[in-house]
Amino acid sequence: PHEANLASLSRLVYSAYLNNFTLTKEKARAILTGRAGQSPVVIHDMESLKNAESLFLGKWNIEREAELVMFNRYQHRSVEAICEVTEFAKSIPGFGSLDLNDQVTLLKYGVHEAMFTLWSAYMNKDGILVATNNSFVTREFLKTLRKPYSSVIEPKFEFAARFNTLELDDSDLALFVAAIILCGDRPGLLDAHQIEELQDSILQAFHLHLRNNHPDAPRLLAHALQKMADLRQLVTEHADVVVAIKQSDAAFALHPLLQEIYEDMY
């Protein structure tokens, strides 16, 4: 009966994932490998960026710098992703019964880790798929942006290369992301114990699910859990890059939602 409960928890979390994330790993992989039929627009230099921007946003404003255009695109996509992660969190059994202040804390610290996990599914070694715009931005082009903008995405590609070797599918990722959100050691939690109990159930469900879904990879849970520490590091570094951009660019405006997430974060 215990295993049946865990399997049912896994199903609930997976269904919440499918209901809330518009671009799943399965869909992203189909587009990236050309199985989906329609190919994305490839953004590999300034000219293709200008063409894509005028296609999606209307007239290209020559006054605006490519770096700011790219970063605003990135901010916009982040806010959308944060909304998706929040709706997903709200559907995790038990999350809604937590103190509202703890829900806020879990999201403040968890949304970026969740987001960079999901973005790994949209990345290959050559670039990242931005399917809301049906575009594929190359890694080489992102590297050519001036500093510190060139340092925004590159560490995420390095993480994705390592993370993607685990070959988790969407049903695994659903539980992995739920476990990231329900983390009992975020700073300032009022009832860490209650959250640890919820995370414990998710991790048990994840363990059982991996055993059934990947019977040939008995160490997969341990490997996945190690990646959680890498994600925390990735987010700390990301917050530093955002501060560097803020300091270096007068024209830069951070979205208010991202502002409140980064403020007093680490």
């Binding site: 944060i82 929040t86 709200k90 509202l100 403040k108 208010p256 939602l257 409140e260 997430i261 403020e263």
Partner: peptide
């Protein structure tokens, strides 16, 4: 609480909230 008012709104009202 006041410092995280958009996150609060997201949790309570969803992403259709006008603040987002």
């Amino acid at each position: 609480t006041e410092r995280h008012k958009i996150l609060h709104k997201l949790l309570q009202d969803g992403s259709s909230s006008p603040d987002i």
